[in-house]
Every structure is written in C-alpha cells, then in structure tokens.
C-alpha cells in the first residue's frame, strides 16, 4: 500500500522508530540504555530479561524475530521450515539503488534471507505453527518469499491440523516486486480460507507497526486478533489521512487500543504475558499437549 509505506519511510528518515528503538535494543556495547519513551535509564540486561519492555513505563521496544521466537516457543522446540527460500529480483527493479543491492544489504545486516521466519514449535507443550515477520528486513515488507513461506506454513498447519500464529510487523507491500507483492495478499488469504474451513484456530499478533497490505490481508483475518500495547496498526498512513481531512486526528489514532475500541482487536497482550496468554488460548480451544 503506497500510503502507509510512505509514512513509514518518512518516519524512518526522521529516525522516529527504527533509529530510536534499534539503538536501545540492538547495540550490545554499553551496559546501560535509556528508554525512548520515558527516558528512564535501564540496565540493559534487565531490559532483556523483561522481554525488552521498559519496567518503568511499559514501553515495548522492538525485538527481532529470533527474540520473538524465544519468547513464544518452549525452549529448543522451534523447528524452522522452508529455510531454503531466497528472494529474486523478478522485475529487475532499480530506483536510486538496485533492488538486488538492497536485498544483499538487508541480508548482510540481519543474517536473514528475507523478512519472515516460519516453523513449528511448542507452547507449554502444545504444538503451534508460527510465522514471525522481521521488521529489520526492508521494513518487514511483503515480497514473494514472505508470501510463499507463510502460505506453505498455513498449508502445513492445515494438513497437520495445527493452530497458527503469525506475528505481524510490516510496512506493507514490497514495491520492488510490483504486482507479485500485491498478489501475496490474495495467496495467503486463500490458504487461510482453507485453514479456517478445516476449523482450525488462527491468531495474528499485531506488533509495531502493522500497516498497508498486511493489515488488508492476514493481519485482519484471525479467528482471534491479538495486539501488543500501543502498536501502530492501520491501513493508510496517518499523514495521508491528515492531508485529505485537514483536521486533527485523535491522539491514539491507529494504536492497538484504538483498534480495540473500534472492534478490530480482541485482546491487547503485554509482551511479558504473551506466552501465558497464548497457552491459555490454545488450551481453551482444545489444543492438546504433545510429548
């Protein structure tokens, strides 16, 4: 989606979220960090032990896909699927820089092949098909690899009769893959239709930010929709809307809380309670523990 990505890039230029957050969480040098929200100085190890949530103000700092998996999955139970899939440059796309170069750079910086990790894990001994988008990889944008890996995971969940969780973090479509990117929305939604038909549980977890094409597809298709506190969730970008309306938007516009107020989020789950909440929901929906 053009608009939200636009905002995301604009915000990134201002260093509003990528810069600030990654400084707090990614730099391993320095024992102390400062919370970007309340300014509290925190001991970095304490922050990590608290799922990167500020113990003073509750601000949820961004975490990467590996950290997310370790917060959800029982220890050593996550088995990644389709790790062999890598992106191509189907359009031969070049803007100020070639897409191929951007890919190589993102791969080098993150150690990932593309913007999502998929696999099967256990949560309190219950099986779960899990996809985690990684915002560090080109803004979590949805290209063919993201679409293909998620689709394969949904298909596996359907055939193996597994509940499914997709942790969303995305600026939307990956423009460098053109219409092939847009079509991933349809592809994943089609796979989710079959998972739903099989009467299996699907829950997206919306994390900061979940926007554009992801919001207009699998992020909003959960049987139950979970969100992290204060996560930005929306279809169109705030600035675009402000320009069309020429009026002030509510302060909490497009936050998880705002979406819950308007009926689009079932429950907001603080990260520190994520695993417990997931386990409870799985249990309540009849998911059995396995050895």
């Amino acid at each position: 989606m053009p608009v939200s990505l636009f905002d995301w890039f604009a915000d990134r230029r201002k260093g509003q979220f990528v810069g600030k957050v990654s400084q707090e969480t990614d730099e391993s040098d320095g024992l102390w960090g400062k919370c970007p929200e309340c300014g509290q100085v925190v001991y970095r190890k304490d922050l990590q032990a608290n799922a990167s949530v500020c113990s003073n103000c509750g601000h949820h700092n961004r975490i990467n896909s590996d950290e997310r998996i370790s917060l959800i999955a029982d220890q050593n139970t996550f088995e990644a699927t389709d790790t062999q899939l890598t992106p191509t440059d189907p359009l031969g796309f070049k803007d100020r820089r070639a897409y191929a170069d951007r890919l190589r750079e993102s791969q080098a910086n993150t150690g990932l092949k593309d913007g999502v990790i998929t696999g099967i894990c256990r949560v309190e001994s219950m099986p779960l098909a899990l996809a985690v988008m990684d915002f560090r990889f080109m803004g979590g944008s949805m290209g063919s690899v993201v679409g293909e890996k998620i689709t394969r995971l949904v298909e596996k969940a359907t055939s193996d009769r597994l509940p499914l969780l997709i942790v969303c973090a995305s600026g939307g479509a990956r423009m460098q893959e053109g219409m092939l990117s847009l079509m991933q929305m349809a592809k994943i939604s089609g796979a989710l239709e079959r998972h739903r038909e099989a009467e299996l549980l699907y829950m997206p977890l919306l994390t900061h930010p979940t926007t554009g094409g992801v919001t207009a597809s699998f992020a909003m298709l959960g049987d139950l929709i979970l969100a992290e506190p204060k996560a930005l969730i929306g279809f169109a970008g705030r600035r675009v809307i402000e320009q069309t309306l020429r009026e002030k938007l509510p302060d909490n516009f497009q936050t998880a809380e705002y979406l819950q107020e308007h009926g689009f989020v079932d429950t907001i789950v603080p990260r520190t309670r994520l695993r417990k909440t997931l386990a409870t929901l799985l249990r309540l929906h009849g998911v059995k523990t396995v050895k």
Partner: peptide
C-alpha cells in the same frame, strides 16, 4: 493464486 510470486 498459489502460483504467483517468484522465489529461489
């Protein structure tokens, strides 16, 4: 739709 996209 399943066939749409290009991956290596």
């Amino acid at each position: 739709f399943r066939a749409m996209g290009r991956v290596l």
